[in-house]
């Protein structure tokens, strides 16, 4: 049962990451391989503020969201001018850069040693120490993220994003400022990813740079692509499959190091197979 709760919490965290990346990839058609960077900003903000500065979880969460939003705004302002291939390369470069900061800014992040002893959230004296209580919190944030995302994509703003995805030129002709639309959604997406980071840091109680490398971004990308681009429920489905399925490897008796690598090999293979036979994913509404 504990194990099931553990998996559900991971599902909620990756669900938030999938939903927020889908806004950029599925609804706006911008392929981004840097989501782990924003995930990491949220996690490090919560980790450092809670473990080293005595802040509460919810304060650190809000600060994390703001910091990640600011970073994604700045980066978005640079990258949104680029198109296609160049945008992709820029995002990979950004993830690499942020990872270098996590690894090398020793005084702040303690480098490869990571930050340990991150406490659990506490709300008006009620502690989320028990996993089952933490699960409620995680699911609540997943729901909030889902509702925000649904609100965004169903608004007129969201329809304009889909328009950009389908035919950028046409939207420009109609007088839409493409650049600011892309920048806005990139910022929202980065800010939402920080929520998942804060939850992750507080739940696992330990973070190090490894969890936020480019391969993590590829994993989040695989969630979105598998579930389906441009469909929010697809991201939840993708997160469910990719979080739960690899656990069977552990049951068959793979040692945990090999299980992690096998999981990586499998989602790599999955991406190739999807691109060959079903680039829109399981229930997607858009092809890259």
């Amino acid at each position: 049962m504990d194990y099931l709760i553990h998996l559900s919490i991971l599902f909620a965290i990756y669900g938030i990451l999938g939903l927020s990346l889908n806004l950029v990839m599925g609804y706006t058609g911008l392929l981004s391989v840097t989501h782990a960077a924003f995930f990491g900003i949220g996690a490090y903000t919560t980790g450092i503020l809670m473990a080293h500065a005595g802040f509460g979880f919810f304060t650190s969460l809000v600060i994390g969201i703001v910091l990640s939003g600011i970073l994604s705004f700045i980066v978005g302002a640079i990258l949104s001018r680029l198109s296609g291939d160049y945008f992709v390369l820029g995002t990979i470069g950004l993830n690499y850069l942020v990872l270098a900061v996590f690894t090398n800014w020793y005084d702040l992040t303690r480098g490869p040693l990571g930050i340990a002893g991150i406490p659990k959230p506490n709300l008006f004296g009620f502690s989320f120490f028990e996993s089952s209580h933490f699960l409620i919190l995680a699911i609540a944030f997943l729901l909030i993220t889902f509702l925000i995302s649904r609100f965004v994509v169903n608004s007129s703003f969201g329809r304009a994003l889909k328009g950009i995805r389908e035919d950028q030129k046409a939207l420009q002709v109609f007088g839409y400022n493409i650049f600011s639309y892309k920048l806005a959604i990139f910022t929202i997406s980065g800010a939402l990813a920080a929520i998942a980071g804060s939850l992750f840091a507080s739940y696992i109680t330990f973070i190090n740079p490894e969890s936020f490398d480019v391969m993590q971004s590829v994993f989040i990308l695989a969630i979105v692509v598998l579930g389906g681009l441009g469909n929010l429920k697809g991201s939840l489905l993708g997160a469910l499959i990719l979080v739960v399925f690899p656990e069977f490897l552990r049951f068959i008796g793979f040692p945990s190091e090999v299980a992690a690598q096998t999981r990586q090999a499998l989602y790599g293979l999955l991406l190739v197979v999807l691109m060959l036979y079903r680039p829109q994913g399981l229930i997607g509404e858009y092809k890259l």
């Binding site: 392929l31 391989v33 296609g84 291939d85 992709v88 391969m215 590829v218 990308l221 692509v225 090999v258 690598q261 096998t262 999981r263 990586q264 090999a265 989602y267 790599g268 293979l269 999955l270 991406l271 190739v272 999807l274 691109m275 060959l276 680039p279 092809k287 890259l288």
Partner: peptide, 21 residues
């Protein structure tokens, strides 16, 4: 070209994991 990129990313990820194993 984005579909081809994602496929290449998949191959990259897969082979890197196999080398680690």
């Amino acid at each position: 070209n984005l579909v081809s990129f994602v496929a290449s990313l998949g191959i990259f990820t897969m082979i890197q994991a196999v080398i680690s194993i």
